[in-house]
Design a protein around this nucleic acid. Structure first.
Lengths: 165, 165
DNA sequence: CAAGATTGAACGTTCAATCTTG
DNA sequence: CAAGATTGAACGTTCAATCTTG
């Protein structure tokens, strides 16, 4: 018992030391990390599945349509879009090609900078975006916010934004 | 001004009605949803990048190794593993093939059920798993828990588990 | 050379089809 | 037929290489 106590005290100090030196995440941190990855994956999969069932494209497409709609008639350069949604240049390049194939967006050569393009949402794209939102909103509520009590969503956002910021 | 006020009151009632009927997520819910997806994606990407930089395989591999190590000498049937980590059967099948190629796991025909296999971790696999943990733990702390104050991790886990459960 | 953007080849994931045994 | 598991073909993502213009 004495030995056990001795070791425990030692361990407590060592643990406190590691914490102070930021050498290792504590058990709560690991549990939070696991919950974050599991919850996000489960909810995102469920939401994407609902959208697909309803015959809509993926959330990645929705996000692009939303940013372009918000950008207005000027549209955005691909590298600007790249910064807004977190996606790599080579990935965005093919995403935009698929969206253009479906006439949801249009690309125009950029005058003044021969390297670049302007990407704008089309009427078809805006219509698709508007049709998607109700289905998307329902899915978010069904799989995510509907499971939370008053105030928990705001609390969650507050903590997660510290991780992001 | 009167008209505007009139509309606003109407909107407030309509909004309250939608909320009560769970027809649409409120702004806080949408903000929380966005933060969840953004934060998880940013942190997961950062952690995976760190692991890759250190020459280690992906977290998907780590998770499988961990579950198999925990399962002991009996190993697990693929469908049991499928339930523990959330991965589809056809996906797991190829993941396990790649792990077996690197001698991190081994597959054995299951006696008693000719359809099935038992999958076990190898000594190489256990060694890999143990070498990965410090790098993984550092990355979690650097990109996630290190950015949170005392108690926030536990709070976060509590809310996220409600979403999962 | 740097910035903006695209592309071939390799790789991983997904769907539907398939195979084998209970 | 159902359960456990795998596989071909299609698709999407990633890396490194490439192209074009500033």
């Amino acid at each position: 018992m004495l030995l056990h106590l001795h070791l425990s005290v030692k361990q407590v100090f060592r643990y406190a030391y590691d914490m102070a030196a930021k050498k290792c995440p504590c058990p709560q941190s690991i549990r939070a990390w696991t919950s974050l990855v599991r919850a996000e994956s489960a909810v995102l999969t469920a939401v994407e599945t609902d959208l697909k069932q309803a015959g809509f494209p993926s959330l990645a497409w929705y996000e692009i349509l939303q940013e372009l709609d918000h950008a207005g008639s000027e549209g955005l350069r691909p590298f600007e879009l790249e910064a807004k949604i977190s996606v790599r240049q080579y990935n965005l390049s093919r995403l935009l090609a698929r969206l253009a194939d479906e006439d949801l967006i249009e690309k125009r050569q950029c005058q003044g900078d021969g390297r670049g393009h302007h990407v704008r949402i089309t009427a078809t794209g805006r219509s698709m975006k508007n049709k998607m939102w109700p289905a998307y909103a329902d899915a978010i509520d069904k799989h995510f916010s509907g499971k939370l009590a008053m105030g928990e969503a705001a609390q969650l956002a507050g903590i997660l934004d510290k991780v992001l910021g």
